[in-house]
Amino acid sequence: MNIFRFAGDMTHLCSIVVLLLKIEATKSCAGVSLRTQELYAVVFVSRYLDLFFTFISVYNTVMKVFFITSSFCIIWYMRHHRIVSQTYDREQDTFRVAFLVVPCIFLALLVNHEFSMVEVLWTFSIYLESVAILPQLILLQRTFNVDTLTSNYVFLLGAYRALYILNWLYRYFTEPGYSQWIVWSSGTLQTAIYCDFFYYYVVSWRKNERLSLPS
């Protein structure tokens, strides 16, 4: 495993820890999209089905179990925690997830490496992950609640994507025969969506800064 891949995994892990800590410490999930969190749970479950069939490494297994359990933990907080669930922006978080899930199902059925249950589900998870952040970005733009912790979460997720691109480049040049165009194209789309968010974030941050200057 190269340093980019490891750093990418760690920022991904940190992003989830930051989100959980924010929810636990502030007893609030204001500005967090439950729809995005549910999409991530679907992504992890459909991708990590291979936990039952193939063993890659202890690291791999531990990380997969962590991603699945932490995503369900966040969903539980947002849906069922007595105090946290009341802070959920239900009226603002209205993105129609079917617009993302249904095209991803069709695309996974059409474009995959092998037409088998596990492989199609894996491909579906790759496609879905690339767009799963959209409800979160729409919610951030709507509520304009650029809460530091929520934006840290989104920033860390973006850093994870960028590091994964470096990891792919590194592996492409160092491992003969390493090539994975489904993951590359979805990952590039995903990173582009984050760049769009960064642009929006910087613009609103600069606007806020200008507003707070003494007149």
Binding site: R5, H12, N60, H113, S179, W181, V183
Partner: peptide, 10 residues
């Protein structure tokens, strides 16, 4: 193969 290339990633 391309099928297995990404399977060790998360």
């Amino acid at each position: 193969s391309a099928k297995s290339a990404a399977k060790d990633e998360l």
